[in-house]
Design a protein around this nucleic acid. Structure first.
Lengths: 239, 239
DNA sequence: CGCCCCCCTGTCAATCCTTGCAGTTAAATT
DNA sequence: AATTTAACTGCAAGGATTGACAGGGGGGCG
C-alpha cells in the first residue's frame, strides 16, 4: 500500500481563518519590533526522521530553498526546539560551523539576523516553534525582560490555534488524502448518524456509505468509526 | 430527570493552561493600555434564555454580583454581541436607561468605565465576547485606528483558545457531570478500542464498560458512541 | 488507449454496539 | 439512619459495523 503524494488533489483543510490569524500575529510581532515571524511544527516519522511544516511571512523563494536544501535538519533553532522548551535568543553570527555557512548567508540575505525562538512541545514528541526575527538590532537583555511575557503568550496563542492545522497539512503527505465524500461522511458520523441515515441524507445506498467509511478508517489508520472520527477531529478535518 | 448543579463534584476540565493563557492576554491588554480584560461566552438554551460564562481579571465580588443580579441580561455589550459582529466602543456614561443605573454604578466602582468589546459568533448562535476596559481615558478614534488590528487579533486568539473550555464549563450545568470512569472510557473509545478491550485495560467486565459508555452517551445527549466521542472532544473533555 | 482514482453497488459472516431487564456493593450526603 | 450516587455485573434481543469477495461507470492524464 503506497501513500505517495499526489499532485492534483486539493487541500481541503487549508482555511483562510488561520491565514488571517497569522496575519494578526505578524502585526503583533511588528509592534514588538520584529519584522519577521515564523511558526513551524515538527513531527517525528519512524524511519524517515522528521517532517516540518511552516507558516511565515518570509519570501516564498526562501521558504522553498529552506525546504529544498533541508535546512531544518541543521537549523540550530530547530535543534533547540527538539529538546528544550525554553526560549532561545540567537544571532545568525553565531552560526559558524561549516555546515551552517549557507544557512547563515541565506538568513542574512533576507534580513533574518537576530531573533527569539520559543519552542512548545507535546507528549508525542511533536513540537511547535515560534520565531520572531529582525535584521538590525540584536535582542538585548533589557528588551527581553520587558517583552518576554508577551512573546511567550504569542507563542502559546500561535501554538493553540495553528498546530492542529499544520499537523493536518503535515500528516497529509503521510496518510494520503481523504476524499470529499469521505470527509462528508465522517462529519455526519461525528454527528451520530448511522450508515443508513447517512446514505439517506446523501442519496446513496447504505453499502456506499459503509464503503466510504471503511476507506476513511483505513486512510486514517484507525481501528473503527469512533477512532476515525476522533482522528479526523484532532487533525482539524471536521471543523 | 433532573440535572441540577451539584456542589461537591470536581470540574475535571478546568485546566490551568487556559488560566495561564488568560494571564498572558491580560498582560497584552495592559500593554495596549487597558487594565481590565474579560472574555465571556453566551449559549442559547431553549426555554431558559441564555447561559453565560466569563473569565476575567475583575474582582471576585463583582463577578459574583454580576452573575447574581443577572446583569448579563441587560448589559449593552452583551446585547450587542448577540447580534452584531463588529466591535463596540463604549463608555459607562452612555448607560443611562433606568435599568442600567445599577450596572453603571457597579462598573464605575471597579474602574471599568471605557472599553472596547469585540464579539465573535458561531453558527449555532453561541457567541464569545472579549472586552478590554479601563478607568480613565475614553477610547479615541486615533487610538482605535492604531490598535484595532491588534485588538481584533487578541479577540480571535482568546476565542480560539478559550471558547471550548468555557463552553464545557457552561454545558456542564446543563448536561450534568460525566464521571471519571465515563471520561476514561470515552478517551479509550476515541482511541479506537472496543468495549471488550477497554474492559480488559481497566480490569472490569465488558458489561461494565458498555454500561459506562451508555451512561456517557445519555449524558451527552449523543446518538451513539462515535457521536459521544465527537461531543466530548468538542467540549474539550478528551484533551 | 491504458492506467489510476473516485464514486457507486451487491452479498455474507463475524463482530460490535445499543438497550431493555434486574440486581450488589461501597462511599458520600443528608 | 436513610438516601443518593458511582461503580460494578449478568442475560438477551436486535440493530449497526466491519471486512472480505466481486464488480460497473466516469474522468483525468500520459
Amino acid at each position: 500500500m503506497k501513500m505517495a503524494q499526489r499532485k492534483g488533489s486539493q487541500l481541503l483543510y487549508v482555511s483562510s481563518a488561520h491565514e488571517q490569524f497569522f496575519r494578526g500575529l505578524v502585526h503583533g510581532a511588528r509592534s514588538l519590533g520584529f519584522e519577521h515571524c515564523c511558526y513551524m511544527i515538527g513531527v517525528p516519522v519512524e524511519g524517515e526522521g522528521w517532517r516540518h511544516v511552516m507558516m511565515s511571512n518570509l519570501p516564498w523563494a526562501w521558504r522553498e530553498r529552506y525546504s529544498r536544501k533541508g535546512f531544518h535538519a541543521i537549523d540550530p533553532t530547530v535543534q533547540h526546539a527538539r529538546q528544550a522548551s525554553r526560549a532561545l535568543v540567537w544571532s545568525a553570527d553565531q552560526f559558524n560551523a561549516a555546515p551552517l555557512r549557507e544557512l547563515r548567508r541565506g538568513l542574512r540575505g533576507i534580513g533574518y539576523n537576530h531573533g527569539w525562538s520559543q519552542p512548545l512541545r507535546d507528549v508525542d514528541g511533536r513540537f511547535g516553534l515560534l520565531t520572531l526575527a529582525r535584521g538590525e538590532t540584536p535582542v538585548g537583555a533589557d528588551e527581553l525582560r520587558e517583552k518576554s511575557q508577551t512573546l511567550r503568550w504569542f507563542a502559546q496563542a500561535a501554538h493553540a490555534v495553528l498546530f492542529r492545522t499544520l499537523l493536518a497539512r503535515c500528516q497529509d503527505g503521510i496518510l494520503g488524502h481523504l476524499t470529499v465524500r469521505e470527509i462528508d461522511i465522517l462529519r455526519m458520523a461525528a454527528d451520530g448518524r448511522t450508515a443508513l441515515e447517512i446514505a439517506a441524507a446523501m442519496g446513496v445506498t447504505e453499502r456506499t456509505a459503509t464503503f466510504h467509511i471503511s476507506n476513511a478508517i483505513e486512510k486514517l489508520g484507525a481501528a473503527n468509526k469512533a477512532h476515525a472520527v476522533a482522528c479526523a477531529m484532532r487533525l482539524g478535518l471536521l471543523d
